[in-house]
Amino acid sequence: MGYLIHYSTIFFLFLGCFFILSGSVGLIKLPDVFSRIHAAGLIDTLGTGFIILSLIIHSGFSLLSLKLLLIPLFILFTSPISGHAISLFAHESGYKPKAKLKR
């Protein structure tokens, strides 16, 4: 059981780090603002999500894991708002996305 907890912690931590790495690569690699927001959203949801999951497994199920669960809960509400705000102001200030509008 101890081994299981240990190795699943390592596995999920590695997975979260991988998603944060690929989000950061996407932030540099993708062409315009609107596409880069997607990469940032990847860091917000999957990166922090998996890292906090591994921390919950590591700490055992106690009051501490409830506290840790509150972090993704607040990210769940705040991260889309920041993404929407950036894209809305980019759109309103006349920045054209590379994509065409499809009907």
């Binding site: 927001i37 997607h38 949801t45 993404g83 894209s87 809305l88």
Partner: peptide, 11 residues
């Protein structure tokens, strides 16, 4: 929509 990676609500 915004929370799922790959799609963002602009307006």
């Amino acid at each position: 929509i915004t929370l799922t990676p790959g799609t963002v609500t602009i307006e």
